[in-house]
Design a binder for these strands. Structure first.
Lengths: 115, 115
DNA sequence: TTGACATATTCCAATAACGGAATACGATAC
DNA sequence: GTATCGTATTCCGTTATTGGAATATGTCAA
């Protein structure tokens, strides 16, 4: 069994850095033509069109026709599963950092006592 | 150019659902032997060992030897880049929901005025 | 209708994933 | 040392991906 398709879910779609970059561009809420995306990220037009097709397949972007242009825009809510999955772990490194910080403060307090 | 390696970064590593599942298991902060993981997720041992190897390669888990067992545990901070990347988008679907809510409230207010 | 522009699609080559099966390695116990 | 348990590794076949190049499709304007 090969690796899951890039279009099989949002986790596979965003594994590719340039696709995350495109999502980042569209995050300003504006509609972007393919040419604009091509100019922003430095990559040939066919490659960009392919990445956009993957993003569209998983639903994280959608298109609007405008004459000869295609205007892509973000559907951010499709990223929610990623957020929901990773959010709980935030607490783990938070508490770990908190623990380190606490220990550092304790040592500082000990040093202060000695003097 | 082929797809990026699953071990090339955390985004590629977590694209595979069973690897996310394993991360979920280890999120209780305990050390898990391979056998325990095998029993928890239903999957043959070699497959689990391979997934663990990928997770270890990107650093999101680490191992400790204990006799003939290998005890794996989570290094949650490696997930931080994923969290950091996706977090800003939260606001987008939040405001979108907020906008819908606002509109609903406006309509309710309009209806209230008519009566 | 011809041409120019915007975008999508197709074909290619190279690469790596995944599960499965078999097997190898390593540690303990007898 | 031999058996056994726990785990890792190797080999296999199938399949998708990626960028690149070339080309096709579609839309508008002159």
């Amino acid at each position: 069994m090969p690796r899951a398709t890039t279009t099989s879910d949002i986790f596979n779609a965003i594994a590719e850095p340039r696709r995350r970059e495109i999502i980042g561009l569209l995050s300003n809420g504006q509609r972007w033509s393919v040419t604009q995306v091509v100019e922003a990220i430095e990559h040939p037009q066919p490659a960009v069109s392919k990445h956009l097709a993957v993003l569209k397949a998983v639903g994280v972007v959608d298109v609007e026709k405008a004459g000869k242009e295609r205007l892509y825009f973000l559907k951010p809510e499709v990223l929610k599963p990623v957020h929901d999955w990773v959010k709980p772990y935030e607490k783990l490194w938070d508490t770990q950092l908190a623990r380190i910080k606490t220990r550092a403060e304790q040592k500082a307090a000990e040093r202060a006592q000695k003097n």
